[in-house]
Design a protein around this nucleic acid. Sequence first.
DNA 1: CGGGGACTTGAGTACTATCAAGCGATGTGG
DNA 2: CCACATCGCTTGATAGTACTCAAGTCCCCG
Lengths: 250, 250
Amino acid sequence: MYSEQMIAPARHEPRLPVTGAGEGLAGLFRRQPCERFEPGAAVFWEGDAAAHLFQIAEGVLRVYKIIGDGRRVITGFLYPGDLVGLSLRERYLYTAEAVTKVRIRRLARSRFDEEVNASPTLRPELFARLSDEMAAAQDQMVLLARKSAEERVASFLLVLARRLSGDAPVQPVVELPMTRLDMADYLGLTIETVSRIMTRLTGRGVIAACGRHAIVVRQLSKLEFLAGEGDDGDHDPIGVAYTRQAVWPN
Amino acid sequence: MYSEQMIAPARHEPRLPVTGAGEGLAGLFRRQPCERFEPGAAVFWEGDAAAHLFQIAEGVLRVYKIIGDGRRVITGFLYPGDLVGLSLRERYLYTAEAVTKVRIRRLARSRFDEEVNASPTLRPELFARLSDEMAAAQDQMVLLARKSAEERVASFLLVLARRLSGDAPVQPVVELPMTRLDMADYLGLTIETVSRIMTRLTGRGVIAACGRHAIVVRQLSKLEFLAGEGDDGDHDPIGVAYTRQAVWPN
DNA sequence: CGGGGACTTGAGTACTATCAAGCGATGTGG
DNA sequence: CCACATCGCTTGATAGTACTCAAGTCCCCG
């Protein structure tokens, strides 16, 4: 189902600093054995009893919901260090599926609850992670409700580029382990629209392709502007007229 | 700024049952004095230091974010019993503004944190509320990413109708205290599109207008179908051809 | 009764979806 | 080893939904 060459997953640390003398929430998973999932394999399904939480050791996951006639919405991509299933009720709210090869650690929900309940240092961390998740969800609502296709793609690439910016090379190589269809279902677009805009961004020199599953960001500030962070609206977005040769300030 | 006649706010209890012998999270606010806000007044602004949480005693709030050139996205409407600012970091993630006249109780964040930290019954409730908020956010992402304008409006009306369904009359009167512009900014549409679809739903007998800020749901099952819960996709949505007389199964 | 704001309705446009080929890389079997 | 099938992606042509711009109506309120 997913026979393309493997992409090395992005390496990054959990987003939150460890709070106490322990190792934070991530530490709870440390002793758990790693399970492996091949690309396309589901870790759990929407509607399953939410018996476990997971932490990604390696690889990338997509989480999504399906509505009736097959429409799919990817609500997020998860990277090493991220916790999966934090905001759980009785049942999982979404399906989690491996994008790349994934190694993941599992912890019983009951055990997690006990540990968190017992630790005054873990509770704020859990809370902070939930707040981060909520903030991301709201940003995504903004993107989906009010941004154009080009702004959506640019925003997406920008988030990925910033994820790496710990080592911040001038022109970071951004891995895109997911398919174009995944991107489309995340951004509320079609695969064709995503493809066209990637092509357009490449043609304008904003990004450069490194194979199909990686890009180089050549003009970060332009990408930021196209993502809708320019805020003034007095510049012309690239290729609005499709034939026009836009002239860029720098 | 907002001079229309007041709508009686929907009365409903907090969504979660009180967990312990106390009164749950809501009880923390009980002794706080009520503050009043007129329609259009902001309770707090995106970016303000998040020093307080709020509980709505009466009225309806909208919470929204603005991007650059004035585009607004309403991420939610909040009703009596709801807590405002739960998922907070250092600063508020959004602006909260009164839709109707609002009475609201304020609690210092530090105080709230202390109380929750000290109470093993409040913690699960807080957690459950955050999970509910997350679930709602994900549903909204699905709506914005993949639903048509008609499905969005129908979904919205359905959620409001179900909010009342504690007393479940056969044809519930649903209050719409917000303006059409609010609805549009919540649903990722324009005011004209919302208006046209409301008109279309009225014309087809799915809903009936009760003035501009209330409707009667005449055919709940049809509304559910139009909201995209019909799941089979083999029926025709109303008025797809704009001229066609659809024949409904019942 | 008149003004203004919210809402509705209409006409035309534009952006993105849909439908349809074509391309390029990968993997397989003859 | 190469033809061929497959899959993911790109590109092109066309169509349709929702947006934009523009009146016009309704209702509230002074």
